[in-house]
Amino acid sequence: MRDETIRDDLKASPRFQLEHQRRDFLGMAAMWSAASAIFVALLGAMRLPIPSVFPESNSRVKLGSVDLFQGVAVTPFVEQRLWVFSDDQGLYAISAICTHLGCLVARQEDGEFDCPCHGSRFDSQGKVTKGPAPKPLLRLALSVSPDGQLVVDRQQTVGPEVRLKV
């Protein structure tokens, strides 16, 4: 009985509480600094698996002399996984990589694109008409190199209205 009262008295005293807090504070400080050190170290280590130069970083590819594409409605590039189209405003390129999960779409006779993996369908301008694809097919940036070749940049996308005028 008495023991308990003393203990309660003790606990209530400001000195006891201060002591207690101080000890707690040191413990907490040690714990938190250790934890944050580990956390920061991990954060740093997480940079390792992301390469600073990606293997495909050289994303610009020459497709051939620009003149070849003038007036040719569509030129497929199987290796590059894209098509180059030409209309009265200029040239544009559509990527064959499905925006859903990365399969390759096939161009049908009617000019639409079908994806074999989960049945997405895109119209002749690459707009999604059916299936799970979240975005239209990508338009890739075209340019002309000094030696008159058509160059596509596979990492750089442009809007659907953009044309390369030659």
């Binding site: 390759l104 074999p116 993996c117 989960h118």
Partner: peptide
Amino acid sequence: LVPENPAKAPWYFLGLQELVSYS
């Protein structure tokens, strides 16, 4: 250059693949 058609995951992921084909 040529996707498998159909490209099926191992059986235990196929249920998810069915859902993935909607979004």
